[in-house]
Write a protein that binds this DNA or RNA. Sequence first.
DNA 1: ACGCGATAAATCGTACATTGTTTGTGCAAA
DNA 2: TTTGCACAAACAATGTACGATTTATCGCGT
Lengths: 224, 224
Amino acid sequence: MGIDPIGASSEGASLYELIREDIIEGRLAANERLVVTDLARRHGTSTNPVREALQLLRGEGFVTFVANRGARVRPIDQDFVRDIYEIGVLIEPALTRWFVNMATSEDIAELERIQGLIEENNFADTLRHSELDTAFHTVMYQRHYNRHAAELWWKHREVLRAVSRRFNFTLARRAAILREHRELIAHIKAGNADEAGELISRHVEGSGRHVLEQMRARNAARAG
Amino acid sequence: MGIDPIGASSEGASLYELIREDIIEGRLAANERLVVTDLARRHGTSTNPVREALQLLRGEGFVTFVANRGARVRPIDQDFVRDIYEIGVLIEPALTRWFVNMATSEDIAELERIQGLIEENNFADTLRHSELDTAFHTVMYQRHYNRHAAELWWKHREVLRAVSRRFNFTLARRAAILREHRELIAHIKAGNADEAGELISRHVEGSGRHVLEQMRARNAARAG
DNA sequence: ACGCGATAAATCGTACATTGTTTGTGCAAA
DNA sequence: TTTGCACAAACAATGTACGATTTATCGCGT
């Protein structure tokens, strides 16, 4: 599964996860107030668990606090998404280069298996594609010695997955994803760490650009 | 046994900040249990504020949780420091390149002013040097459009400052710092973004290596 | 020395009190 | 009628206290 240092996922469907999903998925609007008693009533608990969940979310950056005025939903807007992608462009190549130098034949087989499923699915089920794509990159990053960087990537990934779930892949983007994945596997097999890193850089940047275009288009549609 | 009861009861600073400082500064040992009732008694509050502070720290990665077993201090060990520095090596050059292209003459004057204070102090007061050095880099990063990256840098910086406070600068490191800062200002003046980025990469890596060597030496001394 | 059960301790959830903030109302003045 | 403002009531955040449930500890008998 994921890369989870703080023990969040050990609790099944915790209050933290529920509220977090509501924020990421957009069910809670940007800057919306998070009233403790309301959330407690809605989830059938007392206020204390809600308060602790909100503090946890605050620490992770999903919620903002003002003293004596409570919590609000941090907007998952274009700037937020752009920031995350740009950090990915800087970090993921380094993770990839390390993986290329450490990859076993089992790793490569696993990547090819997942890539096979991705091509088999061929974006028919977009949710499934998203999961497979995440799995693909997780194979590469999950064993990296820099746990901090891997965790950071995972946190960002969860946000981006939720955001991009609202959109469809353009045909051009679909083709690019498949092509780049195949090319990446080839680089890994050949042990070309730098080329793989370069490719990932373009891959992440392309993915970010794609999502941002979609967000922009939808915003324009909503405004006009 | 850890906590200084004087600093603990000081007014103004929140419970979160107090516990956080105790972790970063090393007054709370690695993996030490954080018992809610103890902390509450020690800080003269009830348990609820402590619980919320711990969740906040959990979200920021300073504390780990296991269900029904409470919180523990995440170790600020060599791996942790190395991870943070490596992320800095990846991110700071990008922040620097942007700054070089955006720097005004006021920015450069401010950098030269701080650099003057640094050279004037010349590591006589190491704490002051640490503050000035942080100020120097803050001038470069604080206005970056990628708020996420800037915040990430700041959070890391706070940890590293606390860690390196335990050590002294070697003569070689002192010389390198002054030389690289001067060289950096020259690159900024000339508008050489790429050279400045390259230099910052080396600067951060050198700084990280220096701190890690010190940690290693102290660990070895403690063991033998 | 090694389970094993009783006891202590700590976490987690609930209920309540206090304090600070927001909102709505009445009233006077423009 | 509208605007500005004081003031009070409702509301919500923050802090305290306590009971329930889970985990850790320790003494005891084999």
